[in-house]
Design a protein around this nucleic acid. Structure first.
Length: 172
DNA sequence: CGAGTTTGACCCGCGC
DNA sequence: GCGCGGGTCAAACTCG
């Protein structure tokens, strides 16, 4: 399954440790196939796993129940976000879910834009941001927000499979 | 024709 | 209040 799924709820900042547990796996040749481009690229390392400034709120996102772009002034409680860096020549890691891009923004102090994706599965509110670092343009930072509450759309190419092929370097 | 992308406009929070 | 930066919307567009 996808990594945030196995996260225990209502836990503290140490969740990154849990995430790392999910990253443990068979580190084979580190080669991944990108379905879109049919190119091969190398994932040399997962450099770092952060939670984007740790937990930003509880699990529930109050405003999400309010229908269309209803931007009320309810306190925006964000879902926890999970970020990790990968070395890749392509920005999009095919993690088995289907994503639709809904925005792109230039980021300050970064010559690469940040891309915003939403899971297209009905009722699934999971988002992710993908951003290449200026500091090291071989590094792609992916930030996930939310948890998938549905099966993987493309089980033959899921995220766990990708993770299993990554070469992991945990700092612990 | 449906699904996904592009892109400018808009909204919102925050610091000054 | 204003400007800035980040996040989202939505119409137009592309592609299979």
């Amino acid at each position: 399954m996808f990594l945030p799924v196995s996260l225990p709820s209502n836990t503290g900042p140490n969740d990154s440790q849990v995430l790392f547990d999910n990253f443990h796996g068979d580190t084979s040749n580190g080669l991944l196939s990108d379905r879109k481009t049919d190119k091969f690229f190398q994932v040399a390392e997962v450099k770092e796993l952060v939670e984007n400034g740790r937990f930003v709120g509880s699990e529930t996102d109050i405003k999400s129940t309010q229908g269309d772009g209803c931007r009320k002034k309810e306190k925006k409680i964000r879902k926890p976000r999970y970020a990790f860096q990968t070395r890749s020549q392509v920005d999009i890691l095919d993690d088995g879910y289907r994503w639709r891009k809904y925005g792109q923004k230039a980021v300050k102090n970064n010559k690469f834009p940040r891309n915003y994706y939403r899971c297209t599965h009905q009722g699934c509110n999971v988002k992710k941001q993908v951003q290449r670092l200026t500091r090291d343009e071989t590094v792609v930072l992916t930030t996930y927000e939310g948890v998938h509450a549905h099966p993987i759309d493309k089980p033959e190419n899921n995220f766990q499979h990708i993770l299993n092929q990554m070469q992991i370097h945990t700092p612990f």
